[in-house]
């Protein structure tokens, strides 16, 4: 560095003097630029939220209750999203039921049981790769296996929430495994040793000490996965959801609807957004987006808050 090897003889006082006088214009400009980029990014979020809320305002302000409770209808002013909400609810429920136990169990194996051999590193590599596979490719998996798969289609009922939920489970599984692994890895070794020291078996240590300690981290990952599953549209397009009309809206508690034809929030938004009838394409689509974003942000914020709380608790 030029400053470190001065060619002219100067005493330290004069260096300090010159540093004090000359303001670091470039440095300040750089910092301002970096900050500006961040502001632009956050500004986009604000503009986005403002756009969807103002586009959806006629629906949100005048008939929010009706919009939330009515079914698909021929005319935009009557149409509602209740079937989309139920579809998305069941998709998320199936993801929670299928992907979480599987993902957490796989993470337990990878962190606590897996020997260091080629199979383990192959599984690990495979999980990382699966996490990067585009969602539309998972749609193909869902279409061929869960919708049309021989024998499987009679269980899922074809293009149903069950087929969609299984597809989304496959989609989030790698993420669930990776976050659960990170949470388990973060548990102190002392916890295991203390458990083994009092004669607990491996499973007892995992069940009674490691999992409770890792629970907040695991939960954060699972909440984020649910949010991701709720917003995914591409796999559902390939699986096939109904956009014309479904007359019946089975009650929320009726689990048999997981085998029926269905629609979900993201696919409703997609099919509405590309119509020129502005009642559907602007007002209804934007209102549906606001509802979807509300839930997704709620889930995300819960996950972030949970993580921050535990992080600060442990480090502090």
């Amino acid at each position: 560095m030029a400053v470190a090897t001065p060619t002219t003889v100067r005493d330290t006082a004069s260096i300090a003097e010159s540093l004090r006088r000359k303001r670091d214009v470039k440095g300040v400009a750089f910092q301002a630029m970096m900050f500006l980029s961040l502001v632009i990014t956050l500004g986009v979020l604000v503009v986005l939220l403002f756009t969807v809320i103002s586009d959806g305002w006629p629906v949100l302000s005048q008939r929010l209750g009706g919009f939330l409770t009515s079914t698909l209808r021929p005319d935009a002013v009557d149409a509602g999203v209740v079937q989309g909400l139920k579809g998305t609810f069941y998709l998320c429920a199936i993801v929670a039921i299928v992907a979480f136990p599987l993902g957490i169990a796989a993470a337990i194996y990878m962190e606590e049981y897996a020997p260091q051999n080629w199979l383990t590193s192959f599984i690990q590599l495979n999980i990382r790769n699966l996490a990067g596979v585009p969602s539309v490719v998972y749609g193909i998996l869902g279409l061929t296996i869960f919708v049309k798969g021989w024998g499987i289609s009679s269980i899922t009922g074809g293009s149903s929430p069950l087929a969609g939920g299984l597809t989304l489970s496959a989609l989030v599984l790698p993420v669930v495994i990776i976050t659960a692994q990170e949470a388990i890895r973060a548990t102190p070794q002392a916890l295991r040793e203390a458990g083994f020291g009092v004669g607990a078996t491996k499973w007892e240590v995992i069940k009674d000490h490691i999992l409770p300690y890792a629970a907040p981290g695991i939960l954060t990952g699972t909440l984020l996965s649910i949010a991701r599953a709720a917003g995914e549209a591409a796999p559902l397009l390939l699986i096939g959801t109904i956009s014309g009309i479904i007359t019946r809206s089975a009650p929320w508690y009726d689990v048999t609807q997981v085998q029926d034809r269905f629609t979900a929030m993201p696919t409703l938004i997609t099919s509405w957004a590309v119509q020129p009838d502005t009642g559907f394409s602007v007002e209804n689509a934007a209102a549906a987006i606001v509802i979807l974003i509300f839930f997704v942000i709620l889930l995300n914020s819960a996950a972030i808050m949970l993580r921050n709380r535990f992080e600060s608790k442990r480090s502090g």
């Binding site: 969807v52 997609t270 957004a273 987006i289 942000i297």
Partner: peptide, 17 residues
């Protein structure tokens, strides 16, 4: 966290936007 909220916005929403 605000960046993370942006990360959680579903892609259909960005499509509409």
């Amino acid at each position: 966290p605000v960046l993370e909220v942006l990360a959680g916005i579903p892609s259909v929403v960005l499509g509409f936007f």
